[in-house]
């Protein structure tokens, strides 16, 4: 059973409508980026809802700004990460984390998903120059997964306490990993300078 059935239109899913443009765009992107695009998964081949492109870390900024400026995927809907520690591929490639971008085309209302693979202690340049809104999303990813973003102006924890140890959404963090603080979170006066 997969989500390609016509019933999917009930869930706001228009694969048929967008697949010609998707195919065209991905063909073009493959021409210009070649090897930098590691993997393309189309919704017709697999149980996913939109084309998912895995791009090499070196080219990701260029790739995303191309998508933003030349392909009208100008709206960053969501920016998150996943921990693939238990995945079979982890042992082979040592790529533990995936950053996941969901981009939205405000003209045609199409969506696309872009992924970057990172190994455990690898950092990546910030995406704030592309979308200012990525600021807090990056802080959340840092907080939850411990991925460092180079050049981020204010990479602090966002949801957890500043004194927290560990990164809760990593697969090796226990579900009940409580840490109790008796005093309120200290405030950094530098932030208002």
């Amino acid at each position: 059973m997969d989500i390609r059935k016509p019933v999917a239109t009930i869930y706001g899913y228009f694969q048929d409508k967008f697949s010609p443009t998707w195919n065209e765009q991905i063909l073009k992107l493959r021409e210009s980026y070649g090897e930098a695009i590691e993997l393309v998964v189309m919704p017709m081949e697999s149980n996913i809802d939109m084309p998912t492109l895995t791009v090499k870390k070196e080219k990701i900024h260029e790739f995303l700004s191309d998508l933003k400026n030349n392909y009208q995927y100008s709206f960053l809907t969501d920016f998150t990460a996943t921990d693939e520690k238990d995945d079979e591929e982890f042992e082979k490639t040592n790529h533990r984390f995936q950053l996941v971008f969901h981009l939205f085309n405000t003209e045609t209302k199409a969506r696309i998903r872009v992924k970057v693979k990172l190994s455990e202690n690898e950092s990546i340049a910030t995406f704030i120059d592309l979308w200012i809104g990525a600021n807090w999303a990056e802080r959340e990813i840092f907080d939850m997964f411990g991925i460092q973003f180079e050049g981020h102006p204010d990479l602090r924890r966002i949801l957890m306490d500043m004194r927290w140890e560990g990164h809760p959404l990593r697969k090796d963090y226990p579900l009940r990993g409580y840490q109790i603080f008796l005093t309120p979170e200290p405030l950094d006066p530098e932030l208002l300078k």
Partner: peptide, 24 residues
């Protein structure tokens, strides 16, 4: 739930509420 991933968005009262579920 079969293996796959999907991002489902709906216009909630405040804006776009989305669930991005990755299933293995």
């Amino acid at each position: 739930v079969p293996k796959g991933e999907a991002y489902t968005a709906f216009e909630a009262a405040n804006g776009e509420l989305g669930f991005y579920i990755v299933s293995k």
